[in-house]
Simulated assay, not measured.
Amino acid sequence: MPDRNHEFGRLGARGTRGSELVARRLDALVDFIVTPVTTPRGLLARLHYLTTSPKAMKAARAAGLTVTDRTLKAWLAGTQNPSKANLERVEQAYRTVRRHNVARHLLKRLNSSGGTRVEIHPLDQSQVSAPHRRTLEYRHINVRRWDHIVTAWTTSDSHALDDAWTTGVLPDLGSQWGQYEYVTNIGFAA
């Protein structure tokens, strides 16, 4: 069984951790608000999402939106603008609450019909000298249990997501699974 890569890129290979690409793909499956938080429309859309119900407001507070109710009302009314740090907090709270709200539905879709087919594109070896290149090929795998992956993604826990992906999914590729820890792309739909 291969070890995990500790010196990735030392010989010129290029790629991204598979778990990071999985998180990006899960983010792409969620319909986040496209308008940037720095625009009035984007800020209002996020604030409305976070303040429409007591449950949403409680989740926003737990996610790090710690301003007073008076300040929130001023932002919603447009009489006061949040600082750059508060804009980042609003964005982070919005993404956290949105992930939490869609996680159960997304998990159900990913686990349905026996799992979801995932396409894995190998790392880029164009900068690796010929004696050190590996023979890598495009792979696909059917991931049947997404519970740990989606839970780690929902809480933005990159270490847990990496463990769930690297030790929970990749070994199903066979004895050479370590060659797919870093890849150029991972694709799946739900």
Rank of each mutant, 00 (worst) to 15 (best):
R117H: 11
R14L: 14
R99T: 00
S156C: 11
G64R: 00
V150S: 03
V22M: 11
T35H: 04
V118S: 02
H6V: 12
G114R: 00
L87P: 05
A59R: 07
W153T: 01
L21F: 03
G64W: 01
T52L: 09
F8A: 13
L110D: 00
V143G: 09
F8Q: 06
Q80Y: 13
T135M: 11
R117G: 02
R144N: 08
T116H: 01
S126C: 08
R133E: 03
V30S: 15
R134W: 06
E20F: 05
A190H: 01
V143Y: 06
Y182A: 05
T68R: 13
S156N: 10
W165P: 00
T154F: 05
Y138M: 14
L47I: 08
P2G: 12
E137D: 12
D27T: 04
R24D: 15
I33V: 13
G78D: 04
H6T: 10
E181P: 12
T151E: 14
A93K: 01
H159S: 14
D31P: 07
N185Q: 12
E119S: 10
R99Y: 00
S19T: 04
N101A: 15
S126F: 05
N5F: 04
R104C: 06
L11M: 06
V169H: 01
F188C: 01
T135I: 14
N185C: 01
G78N: 10
G114N: 00
L87A: 09
G174E: 07
N101V: 01
L106Q: 08
A189V: 14
T96Q: 06
E88R: 12
R104M: 05
R10V: 14
R98C: 12
I141T: 15
R109M: 03
S113V: 03
K58I: 02
D27Y: 11
R144A: 15
G12I: 11
K55F: 07
T79R: 10
R89I: 03
R61W: 07
